[in-house]
Nucleic acid binder design. Structure first.
Lengths: 346, 346
DNA sequence: GTGCTGGACTGAAACGGTCTAGACAGGTTC
DNA sequence: GAACCTGTCTAGACCGTTTCAGTCCAGCAC
């Protein structure tokens, strides 16, 4: 271990300067690869620094030069902690983020909060205390107050959400409307006339967008008016919604879910209620995490490489932080992957 | 929004002092709730600060007083990013961590690395740059180099792992040996004589501990010698291991898995190979995430509240950081939850 | 020799807080 | 009235960097 040699106490630039026989200024120049020192001096300084195990004090550094060089990226999620572990989307999203951060020696500063107000405070704090160089924002609502707040902070941010929601922030999004439309068309092509959708919380912008596209597609294809239930994305509420749909008078023959976990729960409910899938009921999940391949029958899904999505979002954030700009555009649209839970309507 | 009023530029303590008509020192005293200022002055200062939207510069603060008040906790995981999203354990563990951190306004600094060397460097950097007040360490190996490294850093750390692995660091662990023994006894009581186990990577300490306990229990009960296969915890390798076991000459009648994802994959393999579960094969998962309740039949598992475990680990870390000490002891032992994949041997 | 140039290096001024020693006012105690 | 508190407040040192205005000096042109 090289680190065994390092003295315990804290070394300052002055000591390095003394050992190298130069001034503090020269040490700073030498260590930061700036011009103004000869190669010989640079070498001498380097050696002194290594010998003393000196690493610059981050606080002092960022105090004197406003240009703090932090290598953290923020992510604030306003959902209950319990949900994070259950919702495969976030895990894969975070994994994708980490995959890009890791190769650039960056870390993710992750925080769960109760509401948007708290989220703004957290971002404010992180930004002021220079703990992050940028942040990823998710779960946009209509007229999201974070847009203005973050603009005022001057913090580089990539918004995950449709531009109609993210108010001019550089954004990455998936074309949910197109995906929903594809799903509805597919189900209609299979002969389904009575669809339903189990969606996320109504306050979320992308839920609204999907709902709108769903209703529109159903109307365009002249299917029966479709029910849309909203949930908190949890398996429990997905199960409850499914139970409600299946026990209603005119039960749907196909259900589109807004995430995997609810689709899986829905499949269980159907089985437990004796509704054969896919013979009498088609189910279509969203996101297509590994879960979808684990059930019996395996879930058909709107497939979406969430890991790659997280990676792409992060790549753009790094772009924004590094070059000051990045492209602004959609990620690949989720694509329908038929598996065992969708079939012709009987 | 209250924050709309805040001027864009950065406000310093001097401006607050001027507006309040006092000295910098008084502002510092007043804002930090320290004695030495009258109530009237304190109020005046508070108002001036609010009016200017002043928040102390963290860098300056931690430069002058060595006692930086950071509210981040570190977690470094030396596994590939892909795995993080797939392995329910980590997600639930992280959720549990966040649940405790959130209520104390702390954040999690998360980093994925390739190996232990890199992990040590990351902890070193975080510690020096005062980015975290403590860290959680996982995945201990025999003679883990992190133990010495972290001791040298003087960083408060909670180790997740059996004390035989964590070399004196304050630790939290589950009694895996007891749990494995319970699992083996249960399967033996069901009449199974030929067991197998699909475990994690051999280098991990807790895999070794479980393997040892497994072999011991099998021997104690005079069952047939049992095969143990090691994997990387992924579903693919779990499937492959199961396939190998089921296609071997004398195939086991019961398999114990080291996590959920492999058990789920194993169940799929059994179904696809036409081996009825649980009629001819009993499967027992580990961790018992939500996954286990989603399969058909639902997986029997060594159940372990990973969320609560993560929360407990974090609570102890906060203890350690705050009070300088914490208890050192085991978390609840995983408990066997029989569901649909275990039955009497035929 | 003088005057210039430019590269290497230095010294000291920021940066924005905290903290300490001491000033000052007003009250108590002898 | 002097001595001594005690509570409030201030001036200024200090934390460890970066940065910038200079100094110094070798080299070169004239």
């Amino acid at each position: 271990m090289t680190r065994a040699a390092r003295p315990a106490g804290k070394v300052t630039i002055a000591e390095v300067a003394q050992l190298a026989g130069v001034s503090k200024g020269s040490v700073s120049l030498a260590m930061n690869d700036k011009p103004g020192v000869s190669a010989a001096t640079r070498k001498k300084v380097r050696e002194a620094a290594r010998e003393l195990g000196w690493l610059p004090n981050q606080a002092a550094r960022s105090l004197s030069s406003a240009t703090t060089q932090v290598s953290n990226v923020g992510l604030v999620i306003a959902r209950p902690a319990r949900m994070l572990g259950l919702e495969p989307f976030y895990m894969e999203f975070v994994s994708g983020i980490e995959s890009v951060l890791a190769e650039r020696s960056h870390s993710l500063l992750l925080r769960l909060v109760r509401d948007v107000r708290e989220e703004i405070d957290v971002l404010d704090g992180w930004s002021r205390s220079k703990q992050i160089s940028g942040s990823i924002m998710v779960d946009f609502t209509l007229d999201d107050p974070r847009v203005a707040a973050v603009a005022a902070l001057g913090l580089p941010v990539i918004a995950v959400g449709h531009p109609s929601l993210t108010g001019g922030l550089p954004s990455v999004w998936t074309d949910d409307a197109a995906a929903v439309t594809e799903a509805v068309r597919y189900l209609a092509a299979l002969g389904h006339r009575r669809l339903a959708r189990v969606g996320g919380p109504a306050r979320l912008g992308h839920t609204a967008l999907r709902s709108e596209a769903f209703t529109q597609a159903v109307a365009d294809l002249k299917l029966e008016p479709a029910r849309i239930l909203t949930t908190d994305f949890s398996g429990e509420q997905g199960a409850r919604a499914t139970r409600a749909l299946l026990s209603s008078a005119r039960r749907p023959t196909a259900i589109l879910y807004d995430n995997d976990i609810m689709a899986v729960a829905g499949l269980s409910v159907a089985t437990e209620m004796g509704v054969p899938v896919p013979a009498e009921l088609s189910l279509l999940a969203w996101d297509d995490s590994q879960l979808c391949r684990l059930t019996h029958p395996p879930l058909s899904a709107m497939s979406h490489d969430v890991f790659a999505f997280g990676a792409e979002v992060t790549r753009r954030l790094m772009d924004l932080v590094g070059r000051g700009e990045t492209e602004h555009g959609p990620a690949p649209t989720p694509v329908l992957v038929p598996r065992g839970t969708t079939a012709r309507a009987h």
